[in-house]
């Protein structure tokens, strides 16, 4: 009898301890009030409201796709940082470092997690868009957040694309060669784009292979050393940074627009 009582009090004692209370301010979330406090008092969980309409927590409604997209972004950030410990973005080392990541590093699936995770994120983002469309959730007052979402999708694709070059194998450079050659044809800004020839002073072309958008992206006239470095920096810092800003806006607006959409 006394044993049972002491067991109960163990959890309770833990919940009432100074350490626990300092972290989870409201004690063990048992009562309705405490549970709401658990959400509101946590910097991470207070992305959520404290209470939700019933349909919003059903898998069948949101498919959890937005949440999974964000989760994958976190997974990719962590595994990506791990990969950065071994990978050197130079033509000389990139390829061999990738091989070493599979063969010489314990837990040799870090690269797989990162690559398949990236593919999966493209998928979840598309499916998330599909569900938002099919539930009509893009309509007022959520028009702006739909727009932010479209930009997030574009950023996700660009993140994936910049990462594609880093293994520096045949697949990588040719996919990126084909992809970035389109930039060459940008109207006015690409050296083979319509209108580019108009931007000239007398005989001197302002837009040529050494001064167009493609050059700015590649850091050269073709996919080489400078490109690898530029893509590496964009992939590891530049684009994730932009993605995080947009995600913050996205999540903020979900709350401000009245939480998950639902019929009135």
């Amino acid at each position: 009898m006394s044993k049972k009582k002491s067991k109960q009090t163990l959890i309770e004692r833990m919940g009432n301890s100074q350490i626990w209370k300092s972290i989870i301010r409201s004690g063990i979330p048992r009562t309705r009030r405490q549970r709401m406090h658990a959400i509101l008092g946590s910097v991470f969980l207070h992305l959520h409201p404290a209470r939700l309409p019933k349909h919003a927590v059903k898998i069948g409604y949101t498919w959890c796709m937005g949440g999974l997209s964000f989760f994958l972004f976190v997974v990719l950030t962590i595994t990506g940082i791990m990969l950065m410990f071994y990978y050197r973005p130079t033509v000389e080392y990139a390829y061999t470092d990738i091989i070493d990541l599979g063969e010489q590093v314990p837990l040799g699936i870090m690269r797989e997690l990162h690559r398949w995770g990236a593919h999966a994120m493209v998928l979840t983002v598309w499916l998330h868009m599909l569900r938002v469309f099919m539930t009509g959730s893009y309509k007022p007052p959520r028009e702006f957040n739909w727009g932010v979402g479209v930009l997030l999708m574009t950023i996700t694709l660009f993140l994936s694309f910049t990462g594609y070059l880093l293994p520096w194998d045949q697949l990588a450079i040719w996919a990126v060669t084909v992809g970035t050659n389109m930039a060459r044809a940008t109207p006015f800004l690409g050296n083979e784009g319509p209108g580019a020839a108009m931007l000239a002073i007398g005989d001197i072309n302002l837009v040529h292979a050494g001064s167009d958008v493609r050059f700015a992206l590649l850091g050269g006239r073709f996919v080489g050393e400078a490109t690898l470095l530029r893509f590496y920096v964009l992939h590891c810092i530049g684009v994730p940074f932009i993605a995080m800003i947009f995600m913050a806006v996205h999540f903020w607006r979900i709350r401000k627009d009245g939480g998950i959409s639902g019929p009135l």
Binding site: G210, S211, F215, A216, G219, G220, R221, F222, G224, E225, A226
Partner: peptide, 12 residues
Amino acid sequence: LIRFLFPNVLFE
């Protein structure tokens, strides 16, 4: 900033 993307010397 944009000019910064175009180096003066290319190692090609």
